[in-house]
Every structure is written in C-alpha cells, then in structure tokens.
Design a protein around this nucleic acid. Structure first.
Lengths: 126, 126
DNA sequence: CTAGAACCTGACGTTGACGTCAGCTGCAAG
DNA sequence: CTTGCAGCTGACGTCAACGTCAGGTTCTAG
C-alpha cells in the first residue's frame, strides 16, 4: 500500500505519516524508486497511534510502549510506566466526565431560562 | 486576594492567570498601585476554566461560553455550539475509554507473558 | 525607614504535531 | 514518449498555552 492510500484509510494526513516515521512510530519498506510501502496492518497501527495521541501521550512515550505491544514483554520500569499512563488516562476520563456534567448543567440552565434571539450583551438588566 | 494567592489556591501559575486575563477569561480589579485583586469566586472560576482546557476547548471557545454560564442565557447559535462541544467531549471520553481498555490489554499481556529484567531488545526469539 | 518578597509590563523562547512550500523524481496511462 | 498525479526530502511556518527573563514598582514585616 502506498502512503496516500494509507492516509485515506487511516484518516490522517500524508504529512502525519511521514512524521510518524521520523519519530520511529511507524516503519515502511521502500520500492526500488524510494517510495514508501506499507502492509495492511499499518492501518490498525496508525489508528492505535492516533488513539494514544488523543489520550495525551507524547510521541516519545508511545515509542517506548510499542515494543511492549508487539512482544508482550516489558522491563519493570516500562511496566510501571504503563501502569502510570493507564492511571493518567483514567484520571483524564474522570476530569472530562466532570466537565461534561458541568456543560450539561449549563445547557439545562439555558433551556429552562430561555434561548434568546439576539446577543445577550454584557450581562445587565433590561 | 492577590495573584500569588489565587495561583496557589487554584493550582495554576501566576503567568497562566495573567494569560487568562489577556484572553478575557478572567477579570480583576486593581489596587491603587496597579496590582491585581481577585474575589473569592475567582478560585472556582479558574478551576472551571482549567476543566474546559483539559477537555480540549481552546480559549476563544471558552470566552464565548462564559457569558452563558454567568447569565444562563444564550443565542440559538451559542446554544448549538454548547451542544456540539458537549458531544465532542462525550466522544472524547469514549475514545479515551477505548484507549484505556487497550492499555489494559497490553498490561494484562505483559503480566501473563512475563516481566523481564533487562531491555527486551529488538523483538527476536531467545 | 528599609530590605526583600511579590507584583507589574513587555517581549522573546518553547514544545509538539503537524501544514505548507520548493524543487525534484517515480510511475502508470494513453 | 510525455503527461501529470503521486511521492520524495528539506526546511521553514504555525498555533496555543504558557515559561522565562529583564528592568522597574509596590507592599509589608521588622
């Protein structure tokens, strides 16, 4: 598969894929002409990388994790790191849940207080 | 309350608070000497801002929301915007949950496959 | 009254994940 | 063969949310 196809199938830009390679997150073989070629599994791998990015992990951390993912083995240090990041994500989920709840409150407030036709202005009495 | 106290109490840096003011997220009165002074509610407000930041909302969007929060009123457009952001956060939560699940799988894999004393190296058979 | 901690503005630096542009090359179709 | 899209490298640009430094002012404890 060529880089443009992988980009479309995984939903990221061509530039992003080259960046991932630069960061050693993604490998490719090359055609005799020097063009990148990817196997099918690359699609899943890119999606996985995107998920970890979305979870707030920087590329250097992801690079450290990929061997564990591939082999199922890890040093003590990497294992602890895995646990720590898992907890960080869990915490993040809690924060987001709280934020969503607060937004829900605001939305409900707006619904019961009323939707206004024009700009409410700088919050003074009519 | 002075800026240093607010920083400690809300857990953000002094620089961040000045930045919030610059972005019109936070107001302050000034002492005759020109120093910022905050009321008690500022602590909650800063925490709220932090939560929205953590949820991935950029400052310009937050600025738009603050009037709704304060007044409970919104234009149709702002209301739709609120709903959209709420959904974005919900989606984000789902993504994070999936990422956590995947990390859990990796962790379990490592636990059952074994923790290794040294660097596992470039993934070859022993 | 004075030392020094806390504050002020203004401006430049940082970081990560790409976007974008330039200039060149590979490759499949007609 | 040539057209032209897709790909290549290299390098600079961007954007947000601050960090940090300089050079000066205000506040407060003693």
């Amino acid at each position: 598969m060529r880089i443009g196809d992988l980009a479309k199938r995984s939903g990221v830009s061509v530039r992003a894929l080259r960046y991932y390679e630069e960061q050693r997150l993604l490998e490719s073989t090359r055609t005799p002409g020097g063009q990148r070629s990817y196997p099918e599994e690359a699609v899943d791998r890119v999606r996985f990388i995107q998920q970890l990015y979305a979870a707030g992990l920087p590329s250097k951390v992801i690079v450290g994790f990929l061997p564990c993912v591939a082999t199922g083995r890890a040093t003590r240090q990497m294992f602890d790191h895995l646990l720590a990041e898992r907890d960080r994500i869990a915490t993040r989920i809690d924060e987001l849940t709280e934020a969503r709840t607060k937004l829900d409150l605001v939305i409900e407030q707006v619904v019961t207080t009323g939707i206004v036709a024009e700009d409410p202005g700088p919050a003074s009495a009519p």
